[in-house]
């Protein structure tokens, strides 16, 4: 507890400011939930306030476009995030704690990508994935011909790999940037001590660095999962039905000429549920991670 005392009215003012900000921050949540129970007439006449009767049928309809895809999206988010975190933190740790040739070059190699306007990559990336797809198909054809006993079917388009691999690549950029700063801020003595104890580099990473970084990694996990969860164009482009993710499923609720906001908001609400659960479970670590000071906005 800080030994600073505060006058009462000032304290109330502070609470007022913080409360107002909290209300503004929660407004979208409020609207999302309230609108999700409205039919078209209720929505057009009273968009802001709750109306009765509540239309639970919106949720039934929305579930058809969200439910089937939740498991798959979770799978993609999990695999991609775990791999990203593993590779990213490993790189960051090495970059921060050891001196070796090409270290600086590698760091710039990574962060220069932060400045490439993302939308520009969409079409070239798609072309690349189709080319890889062709190569893999050719390869599996060749293998099948060479070894008649083996049946392989390697492909990339319309598989979750088309989603996961670019996500792993793209996700690491920010992560390395942040984690490197984090590891640099840790006292070098810890690593030194472990080294003297005869631990290998990887052991130091595994037993010293990772536990230290637990909160910040939790924070980065959440941020990464949210990004993958909400990504829309890329999954739409590389997947076909039966392979879609939640965000693509949600777009089915927006028609050509008009949008029925009730079911759409119900869909958003449903899609947000797994994220909210994740937040609730990781809240403590998440906030701790931010509090560690490594993330600079």
């Amino acid at each position: 507890m800080r030994a600073v005392t505060h006058a009462k009215p000032l304290e109330l003012l502070k609470l007022g400011v913080l409360g107002a900000v909290a209300i503004f921050a929660l407004l979208p949540v409020y609207f999302m939930v309230v609108i999700s129970f409205k039919d078209m007439v209720q929505f057009t006449n009273h968009p802001y306030l709750p109306t009765w009767p509540l239309h639970f049928s919106n949720y039934v309809r929305a579930w058809g476009y969200v439910g089937p895809y939740i498991g798959r999206t979770l799978f993609v988010a999990a695999i991609a995030t775990v791999t990203t975190l593993f590779l990213g933190s490993l790189c960051a740790f090495y970059l921060a704690q050891f001196r070796f040739a090409g270290k600086e070059v590698f760091f710039y190699y990574v962060i220069i990508l932060m400045m490439v306007p993302g939308i520009l990559n969409l079409v070239p990336l798609y072309v690349l994935v189709t080319q890889l797809d062709n190569v893999l198909r050719g390869l599996s054809r060749m293998l099948n011909e060479q070894f008649p006993g083996v049946q392989v079917d390697l492909r990339m388009l319309n598989t979750l790999w088309a989603l996961i691999l670019p996500a792993i690549a793209g996700g690491q950029i920010m992560m390395i940037f942040i984690l490197r700063q984090f590891f640099e801020a840790q006292p070098a003595a810890l690593v030194e001590a472990a080294r003297i104890d005869g631990a290998s580099h990887f052991q130091i990473y595994r037993h010293v660095a990772l536990p230290l970084a637990k909160p910040i990694i939790a924070t980065l996990t959440v941020i990464n999962v949210v990004a993958i969860w909400n990504d829309f164009v890329w999954p739409l482009v590389v997947l076909q039905r039966d392979h879609y993710t939640v965000s693509v499923g949600l777009r089915f609720l927006e028609g050509q000429n008009y949008v029925e906001y009730g079911p759409l908001m119900a869909g958003y609400t449903l899609a947000a549920v797994p994220l909210v659960i994740m937040f609730l479970f990781s809240m403590k670590l998440f906030i701790e991670g931010i509090a560690s000071g490594a993330i600079k906005m």
Partner: peptide
């Protein structure tokens, strides 16, 4: 409270 809205898509 400040963290929670992160779970809501910006479109809303």
């Amino acid at each position: 409270i400040y963290v929670l809205p992160m779970a809501i898509p910006g479109m809303v």
